[in-house]
């Protein structure tokens, strides 16, 4: 008995609810942009500068006490949050202390750092500082720039490659789908206020990579079917293509999501944000390959005659009687 995630033969009409699915995508994109602008991203120190100290103590974390201890140091904005993870031992209590960038300093000075450590040690004796990271405002500014360049360069490179291998309509469709994935990921990070740092950018690029992979497989089949079914309606050929590749789409997303789920639950809290972004992106990316990319291509139309080159090309006056 074989496991079949998708029935052997499917003949679903993926355009039946096109108005609804595309509408939902547009609404989701708009909501994400609104969330991004209204709530804003919870930037990590990579992009904002500042210092994070990870503490580990055997006594439970008392956030209020930690805050009171740090208050007299006058370090400005201090955020303390407790970290939970299934992989922690019973007497392992972890917290993240985040200190805003100090005026006129690139990093947290040694005196400030030891003052923080002494203060916390007074509240929670035997506390350990398992990681201390400090990023200056100068670097964080550059990191933002690099991140934006990375995402833009990825989209441009894909636009170009798909245009090279397919037609320009396909590359616009693919990039529209990718844009959709990126914006939705930023949206969920705004809504859930998950820390947005350099790793998140890496995750977004991975999402772009995964989503384009999915889209290209469908496009590849579409190209093949467009030659095979010359007489059929574009919409119909698209449906055939998606149905034919559906079981692969679901299977690959399935294995990837299963692997990621293991990492999300068991991989520890340090990379949870990163893994969550990819996990979310795989779901959104699979959806967009099926429901967004090809709709854009349908909207733009495709040259149907692939077999022979257009004879009048470059000879626009050929039809004119002299």
């Amino acid at each position: 008995m074989r496991l079949k995630l998708v029935p052997e033969e499917t003949n679903w009409d993926f355009f039946k609810y096109a108005r609804f699915t595309l509408g939902a995508s547009v609404v989701a994109v708009i909501l994400s942009l609104v969330a991004w602008l209204a709530i804003g991203l919870n930037f990590g120190i990579d992009f904002q500068g500042g210092t994070t100290v990870r503490t580990e103590a055997s006594a439970p974390v008392d956030v209020a006490a930690y805050r009171d201890a740090m208050e007299p140091l006058g370090l400005g904005d201090v955020v303390i949050s407790e970290v939970f993870d299934p992989s922690f031992a019973a007497d392992q209590h972890v917290a993240m202390v985040r200190i805003a960038a100090q005026e006129g300093q690139e990093g947290l000075s040694a005196e400030n750092l030891s003052a923080v450590q002494d203060a916390l040690n007074a509240v929670a004796p035997g506390i350990k500082f398992t990681s201390v990271e400090s990023v200056g405002p100068k670097v964080s500014g550059e990191l933002i720039q690099t991140a934006v360049i990375a995402v833009a360069a990825s989209l441009a490179a894909i636009l170009f490659y798909i245009w090279l291998r397919f037609e320009w309509q396909f590359s616009v469709g693919a990039v529209a789908a990718l844009f959709h994935d990126v914006v939705l990921t930023i949206g969920i990070f705004s809504v859930l206020q998950i820390q947005f740092d350099l790793a998140t950018i890496a995750a977004i690029l991975t999402i772009i990579g995964y989503s384009i992979n999915d889209t290209v497989v469908i496009f590849d089949r579409l190209r093949e079917n467009l030659i095979k079914y010359k007489k059929r309606d574009l919409r119909e050929v698209m449906n055939i293509s998606v149905n034919e590749t559906l079981s692969r789409t679901v299977m690959t997303s399935g294995t990837t999501l299963v692997a990621l789920l293991a990492l999300l639950i068991l991989g520890g809290d340090v990379i949870r944000g990163f893994v969550f972004a990819i996990f979310w992106g795989v779901i959104v990316g699979t959806y967009s390959s099926v429901f967004v990319a090809k709709n854009v291509v349908l909207f733009l139309g495709v040259k149907r005659d692939w077999s022979k080159p257009d004879k009048t090309e470059g000879n626009q006056f050929a039809n004119i009687d002299a």
């Binding site: 992989s87 947290l108 990681s131 068991l266 340090v270 990379i271």
Partner: peptide, 19 residues
């Protein structure tokens, strides 16, 4: 120093185990 990061060996080992 524009950027400073310290990771304790325990945290690293925890990450390896979890991974």
């Amino acid at each position: 120093f524009l950027e400073e990061r310290t990771v304790g060996p325990e945290l690293g080992q925890d990450s390896i185990d979890a991974g």
